[in-house]
């Protein structure tokens, strides 16, 4: 690893620049906030970009209804602490409104359904830009994303027709009804995010740190039991020391066995691991080779 934190400043400068550019170029931007570490970092960056003024955009949470209670609790605490506006879009309501069919299977993901709620929320509040915490190192379709990713009325990503994006000059001009997904931490890696959290002592939900949890052993993964995931008689259920490396839905995010209860310990584990972030924790990416590309084409971020 590079021997100074200079590279973290480079990444921070790039992200703040993108946040300000979004505020300046769009009439109704929004920051998508999930309560996960990447969007918590985004909020930290927005504080640096806009304080002492208020954020020039609201925070938007697309609530799948399958969240970890710790994440929701943390979300509300942080929002109160910084005194910014939070809009919650509910996947539960979209399911009722459109009579959507839930994904079947043992560990159903509402990732695909989330897109309906996101597009609905964008339409309701007429957002023209949505800032998200997606990173290019996460996944190979995301490795192809622009910083300003233009989406049409259907929210579709057109990977073969992306706008050229030169230097750091960002073109946010769009037709009415279209929107732009903005990715300020595109160039951050998972490790960069953790190093940044450590450097700036950013508070995280407790579930990122080692704790005792009852989990179902599913293939090579540990999935927490919860009101959404009940163990079957045939399941092996263990009580294990775990932490979460990513925080998605309770139904499709796996825990990582870990004793790491401090940031330096977590960072050591992440440096040492030979498994990728999504590979270790997401049950929904592994359905097919192009799962993410397909979701993005349908309007996912």
């Amino acid at each position: 690893m590079a021997n100074s934190t200079h590279y973290l400043e480079q990444l921070e400068d790039e992200a703040i620049y993108i946040l300000r550019e979004t505020a300046a170029q769009f009439e109704r931007p929004a920051l998508l906030f999930s309560g996960g570490k990447d969007s918590i970092v985004l909020i930290h960056l927005a504080l640096k970009a806009f304080r002492p003024a208020k954020f020039p955009f609201p925070l938007v949470h697309i609530d799948t209804g399958h969240n970890f209670p710790e994440a929701i609790e943390f979300r509300d605490k942080l929002v109160a602490q910084i005194g910014e506006k939070l809009i919650v879009g509910s996947v539960e309501e979209s399911i009722k409104k459109y009579n959507l069919k839930e994904t079947q299977g043992r560990f159903p993901s509402r990732n695909a359904l989330q897109t309906y709620t996101l597009l609905d929320t964008i339409q309701e509040f007429q957002f023209d830009a949505c800032i998200g915490g997606a990173r290019r190192d996460e996944e190979k379709a995301r490795a192809k994303e622009r910083i300003f990713s233009v989406r049409d009325d259907f929210g579709q990503w057109e990977p073969k027709l992306q706008r050229p994006e030169l230097w750091n000059i960002l073109n946010g001009k769009i037709h009415k009804g279209h929107n732009v997904r903005v990715f300020p931490i595109s160039n951050w890696t998972e490790l960069d995010v953790w190093n940044y959290i450590q450097k700036h002592e950013i508070d995280l939900p407790k579930l990122y740190f080692s704790h005792e949890r009852e989990c179902i052993v599913f293939q090579d993964k540990l999935v927490a039991t919860s009101e959404f995931i009940q163990p079957l008689p045939t399941d092996t259920v263990v009580s294990a020391k775990v932490r979460y490396r990513t925080v998605g839905d309770m139904t499709c995010t796996a825990a990582v066995p870990s004793e790491a209860s401090t940031l330096p310990e977590i960072i050591q584990e992440i440096i040492a691991t030979s498994i990728s972030e999504r590979g270790q924790t997401r049950l929904d990416d592994q359905l097919s080779e192009a799962a993410m590309e397909d979701r993005k084409k349908q309007g996912y971020f």
């Binding site: 021997n3 290019r136 190979k140 379709a141 073969k160 992306q162 595109s186």
Partner: peptide
């Protein structure tokens, strides 16, 4: 090659960003 179309055709269509680091 991160896109379906790229894998199908064995060509690179758009730029992909990759990240790595060494001790230096």
């Amino acid at each position: 090659d991160g896109l379906r179309a790229e894998r199908e055709q064995g060509i690179t269509i758009d730029v992909a960003y990759k990240y790595f680091s060494t001790a230096h």
